[in-house]
Design a protein around this nucleic acid. Structure first.
Lengths: 208, 208
DNA sequence: GCAATATGCGAATGATTCGTCACATTCGCT
DNA sequence: AGCGAATGTGACGAATCATTCGCATATTGC
């Protein structure tokens, strides 16, 4: 099994090169959004960044590494948004916490919708599934911890570990769909309302 | 805009050529599952099918066309499974219908899990390929029709069109996740129970 | 100011893959 | 058997791309 190197070849030391790296990442994001993964060539990215191909390979050992870096950046952003909003949640009521969770699900998808879409669709092919799944796993854990804190308010027999997966998966899928192909649901807050009905019905009114 | 041709170049007339086409499709599925989309080359598929590349191009004008045909096959299978299970549903009660819908969501994912995963995750969503993959939309319509038939039993203010999207998306996402990374939820019928709690809570106990 | 180092360049390379075509084989039919 | 149509073959052309490498230019440390 031949593994593709995805770690930076060399770290930028001077301000000049840091600018180059930033330009490359920004250019990669743009080209990716405009042309999709297949038609994103290293040459095109370099050109857009106003830099030569050689310079690209100075900092990214492969095309995949470039995309991987982008994915990592984006994933970190999502997790930090989630972290900030969900960590002070131990004190919140079940209902308020749930609303916060829903807000987070939607907000994390608002970060860079088009880029998010491309990255999400291309991730499996870049082999960095791990990072993204990790994002989901970490968010699922935050939800699970919150549910555990309210264990006695949950329906009998509901397992926080399972419920967290159900909630995270459903909320993420619906947010993703709304952002990528049903923006109409986004405008008027319809999405949030529906998500709340879905999650609340599941958590509060289940017959077990 | 250069569009890629995806319709068969020629229709098989003799039994021999029908066998060739079948072998090609079967081989394509295998190679796709084994190597992923990028590393699926027409040469490799032809070889696996015990056929020459030329023959492949006799019936499929491009690599995309080959994959498109596979997708169409698979999508049709899924829709027909759904159709069969959901069409006699006008007579069913809301509750029974819902259970049927859930069974369908899970069953359609059991058809060819690995192939499904590859087609869904790795095949670039471009050109005609995207259109063919609108299985989801078709299933959403079936659900919507069912909901409309029970309109008076639904919470006030719930719009069948929106509710159908919510249900389809959530059920599909959870089934997909269970099949691809949480098979443990599949064995004991846990998945179906959770899906029912989720959907029933949404449909029956919503406060609007 | 001057070496040492970091950064940047881009034509050339090499590997891969799609898709074609001229020719060979098999089939259906009389 | 024999003929035209259908089907199959695989070497080969052409194009695309990721990646490299020798050399040029800029920056830093002294």
């Amino acid at each position: 099994m031949k593994t593709v190197e995805t770690t930076p070849r060399k770290l930028p030391r001077q301000a000049r090169s840091r600018a180059t790296v930033d330009a490359l990442l920004e250019a990669a994001a743009q080209v990716l959004v405009e042309h999709g993964y297949e038609k994103t060539t290293t040459a095109r990215v370099a050109e857009r960044a106003g830099v030569s191909v050689g310079s690209l390979y100075q900092y990214f050992p492969s095309k995949e590494a470039l995309v991987a870096a982008l994915i990592e950046q984006h994933a970190d952003e999502m997790v930090s948004v989630a972290d900030e909003a969900l960590s002070p949640l131990k004190t919140a009521s079940l209902e308020e916490g749930l609303k916060a969770i829903i807000r987070v699900a939607v907000d994390t998808h608002r970060i860079s919708p088009e880029l998010h879409k491309v990255l999400y669709e291309q991730v499996p092919r870049v082999g960095r599934v791990a990072e993204v799944m990790d994002t989901n796993r970490r968010i699922t854990e935050l939800i699970e911890r919150f549910l555990r804190a309210h264990a006695r308010e949950l329906p009998r027999g509901m397992k926080p570990a399972v419920a967290a997966v159900v909630l995270e998966t459903a909320l993420e899928a619906l947010s993703h769909k709304a952002i990528t192909e049903r923006q109409d649901l986004l405008a008027s807050g319809v999405l949030e309302r529906e998500l709340y009905q879905l999650a609340a019905g599941y958590l509060f009114h289940a017959e077990r």
